[in-house]
Design a protein around this nucleic acid. Sequence first.
DNA 1: CCCGTTGCGG
Length: 613
Amino acid sequence: MQLLPWPRRLRALLLSCTDKTSIAKVHALMILTSTLADGSFNARLIASYARIGDTLSARKVFDKLPQRGVNAWNAMIVAYSRQDHPSQVLSLYHQMVADGVRPDSSTFTVAIKACASMLDLEIGEEIWSTAVDCGYERDVFVGSSVLNLYAKSGKMDEAVVVFEKMPRKDLVCWTTMITGFVQSGRPMEAVEMFRGMQHEGIEFDGVSMTGLVQACASLGDLRLSLSVHGFMIRRGLRMDVMVQTSLAHMYAKNGHLELAYRVFDRMPYKNAISWGALISGFAQNGFAGRALEMLVEMQGSGFEPDSACLVSALLACSQVGFLKWGKSAHAFILKRLDFDEVLGTAVIDMYSKCGSLSYARALFDQIISRDLISWNAMITSYGIHGHAEEALALFLQMTETNIKPDHATFASLLSAFSHAGLVQEGQYWFDVMVNKYKTTPGEKHYACMVDLLARAGRVEEAYELINSVNTEPGLAVWVALLAGCHNHGKSSIGEVVAKKILDLNPDDLGVYALVSNFYAMARKWDDVADMKKMMKQRGTKKVPGYSLVEVNGELHAFLMEDMTHQHHEDIMQILNKLDHDMRAIGYVPRNEFLLHNSKDEHSFQQRKFIKLL
DNA sequence: CCCGTTGCGG
């Protein structure tokens, strides 16, 4: 065997080390031979410790070095970056600059990546400008890192400026732009970027394809999705877990659950995220039972659900008011997972939607990590349950934190006032929102205000409010106004509004029921007949509304004219008694809301639904 | 030669 000269043997030895003891032996050898003083070798030793995840030993070597070259600094910085410690990366970067060591391409790349992961645009831009001063403006690595910094900060227009100035754009640069556009909610531009990359003759890989698939997912265009899927099969792309999971999610998110399941079922290797893609798909498309079933199946297959899976499961429980399962999901989280903002908010939302407002509030007060959406969820909960004073109290408490209310916060607050019928308060806070918080009111806010005024019978004022806005209001606003017209006998405005609603051609049966009831109130019998006809046509295509009640951990579903419940007789008896008692204290039922159509088909679909649970 | 892009959730 031919002996290599000492330094080269050391390098080969270090590369072959896979555990701490063998690295320590080479380390000792380096001390003996004084090789540690060599800037390129001490960096390799640090990198070796870092590669096996032993950042602490790497740091010990680093700290003991008599003088540190750029490679030693880089090795240590990369070690922290690998361990996902961006703040350590930045602190070392600053120390290095203070020590008078000139950073290189690798240093800038990793330092800017650290800023991107901490969403610190300001420091990132500062480092970028230092990099430009040091002559790295045209560097692909530094450049792609900067693209990612802008992308993660939601500044895609700035990213485009940098991107277009880059003399050489490689696969990673294009991919960063594609995923950046997707994450900024601009999927169309992501698709255009992919086309641009193809046009430049740069071959795609699994990562860039994942970006394109995510773009398809958020566009929700089935034809595009299918053609992209076909394209990757034709081009023989190696399908790894990530690509397949993103494909399954693309179909699942847009309600094509059979297609999603087909992709999922054929995956040779699955992980918790793949399961999560399917569970969220079922939950978000109203298949609560299937979502929960999959969570159980997942555990049966030996996978530990992660926090995203539980968020979807909680959403499923919220939708059907399944408190028993929601509670066990909560218990699972306490036992196995850490509460973050998302998970905490999902549990709060579940308790609230399952009727346990006090549990929701107790949890809200208890969890440490609360962000904007957590506050919004809690304020919404009070609003839904009709507690406008509590909603306002919470809002005021929120203004004392450093979390700033956004458009959704005000939408929740205004909706709380509208549910409670507090007109003056609603108007006051609408004014505060516009003038103090400089929040431009959107569709939702106008819908709340119109609802608020219309419920109070101030239909003309509501109508004026709509007309004072430049943009054409959407369905929700008109519906709120028409409900007011119906309840307060305002025929003339109502007729205009009803026509607006019908022009929008909504696919919600309840909306047609409202229009029909309005016409009945206005004694427009021909229009009532038209509405009934239209509802009958559309009604057969839609699953009807139903109520779910949980008793002792079991869900019971109820829908019109369905007599399949095992305690049907008893329930009817109690309902009749309640109806009698209510009438006795002055309740007048509003029968015009009742619909009678295609009961047999509905009952059948309902039974199918119950089976899924 | 190292460094940059990477799938599910409120």
